[in-house]
Amino acid sequence: MNFPENLRYTKTHEWISLTGHKARVGVTEYAQKEISDVVFVELAKKGHPVEQGKAASVVESVKAAFDIYAPVSGTITDANGALEANPGLVNQDPYNDGWLFELEVSDPLSVDALMTSAQYAAFVQSGSAH
């Protein structure tokens, strides 16, 4: 499974990409497979403050709804509007066109504390991912 090395990862299967104070967030390839066909995304709300580990967006499969958590604290600056018409982008391209939201990160150092690609791959492998 593909876990790009330039991203950081959470135990709840989000990825985050940081540039300065700005970050983009989505779900990992592992997560999109577990969720199965994404048929609806409740977009994160622009301008809303989010706390690390709290739900910022919701992704739904045919059967169930999954909370997507903010990997770090900050303020939502944008959400991927393309997912309203085409939620399947989360499955097809989880690291690019299927991104979920962007945020202004309160503390860029908090991203460094998250898992690297290698750590996340080991975490998924260990099965504790369930």
Binding site: S36, D37, S61, K63
Partner: peptide
């Protein structure tokens, strides 16, 4: 079995 390939 919940699904084999996909519910859709």
């Amino acid at each position: 079995p919940l699904y084999y390939t996909s519910i859709i």
